[in-house]
Design a protein around this nucleic acid. Sequence first.
RNA 1: UCGCGGGUAGUUCAGUUGGUAGAACACCAGACUUUGAAUCUGGGGGUCGCAGGUUCAAGCCCUGCCCCGCGAGCCA
Length: 570
Amino acid sequence: MSSSDFIRDKIKADIESSKFGGRVHTRFPPEPNGYLHIGHAKSICLNFSIADEFGGSCNLRFDDTNPDAEDADFVDAIQEDLAWLGFEPNGEAKYASDYFEQLYTWAEDLIQKGLAYVDDQDAETISANRGGFTTPGVDSPWRERSVEENLELFRGMCAGEFDDGAKVLRAKIDMQHPNMHMRDPVLYRIKRAAHIRTGNDWVIYPTYDFAHGQSDAIEGITHSLCTLEFDDHRPLYNWVLNNLDLPHEKPEQTEFARLNLTHTVMSKRILRQLVEDGSVDGWDDARMPTLRGLRRRGYPPAAIREFIDHIGLARVDGTNEIELLESFVRTSLNKTALRRMAVLDPVKVIITNWPEGKTDLREAVNNPEDADAGTRSVPFTGELWIEREDFSLDPPPKYYRLTIGREVRLRSGYFITAQDVVTDDDGKVVEIHCTYDPETAGGQAPDGRKVKATIHWVSAEHALDANVHLYERLLTEALPGKDGQEILASLNPESRKTVSAKLEPILADVEPGQVVQFERLGYFAVDLDDTSLFHRTVGLRDEWARIQKRQNNQNKQKNQKKNKGRAPIS
RNA sequence: UCGCGGGUAGUUCAGUUGGUAGAACACCAGACUUUGAAUCUGGGGGUCGCAGGUUCAAGCCCUGCCCCGCGAGCCA
């Protein structure tokens, strides 16, 4: 079912020409320095799906070449999130650090070939001498050391004879190269830091550019897929591999555009800031774009996968609408989520002609999209909660829910007609007095009269209390940081609203993480830790909201026109 | 400023060897409906970045220009 794109086209061509003997082997290479987010999901889906489609496999490899940044906790978290998304890596997780020994040997090979040298300049000097976009770099004074001297020095680096930062190993390529990454890039640096896997075994660590391609090669990766910002690294990727004796065919790097979403930040730095300043509860807050956040929010992994599959692949940087992702979430949940009734903003309905003390057990369909989901029974009594919005004393145009004198259907219940209300001192409705028609138990009136609306309800006597988190966009700006503004400038202080809701009794029996549909409201996920807390995953499409919005816009335009007409002519 | 990569509906992407520009989501309208949901049907939407050139014919080929992204870590 997968669409065709430039990467799949290339792989098909490679298979036909048997470039890698027809093999396809990909990898997902996260650095264990943070939690996975929806942006990573694109890379994950891409690498795993492609392997699957072409009968290959996909490795999970931790790119752990920088002990300063990495933490073992993330290794576990990443594997959990990957499993949650529904992917199983080929064999055990791999680590770039598994190859430190081989990488070291290769570094000596390069020195032997006269293609690498030890540089005594400090970081600032190296940076200054690299030149700029318009100015060529200048050669290091240590560039022409002999092979023997380089070898001895490099071994000394490895043996811990020099201070951190005192020396580096550099590739000897071309300080005049138009591509900055080719101006004698650093291959090894001295860093006395405990590594998550190798502890204090090493004091020198390879850079990304001296580890990634070789790791690919060692694992027999054929197609090394990465994001566009590595485009400039490709010549270096190839240079390194071309100068080494590889155990397999040389892998090929291909770049694609990373995922951007409206109203969303993907930057780890900014996400950390949100966590640290308390704007969100943590990395797994339901408003975070992390996989853990989306999981708490109730996003089905399948919806994420289908979304990624749908948006396709290109080399064009762009931004997808978050609404598109949400539409995949709805489509997925519509088919699977059990329907339940919950009232988020309750107002009391008294049925005046209901037999005193009677409880009627109503049979309600669990999921109209899935006959196998069966039915449940819901207690109905003479005192109910309904949604405050479903009653109006002064109904706006096109409003067709409950209002005085009008009849509506209670879902899976009876037709009721509002007769009267009780208000408090502020005029706020506190009780709606209604009559019901016992003949409408089947959901239809025997005389064939129709009602325009069906509303949901919960028996007051049987209602469960629960907290529900309602979410708005974390960032109100579609493109945060657009036009040079602060990325968090549009941080929404009201991105989460908690309401105490009334639930039908069967909702006592839910699993952590389960997502149900509160009828007419949206999809709601049971919290992972507290089953009396629900998170609004995503609302239902809301035609009424749209009607109101349109009316508001029309009014606004009318006012603007009026004002324009009145504007003085200067 | 230099190098690289890009530019096709609101958004994300298709577009074969040059032959009347497509899809999905979004938007609008209608049908159906015990969720103003879902489902179904239909509709509006485009100076193919701009300007030249080649050609009977250019989104596609050629030239020039414009705009956007990335790049000067001992981060990945």
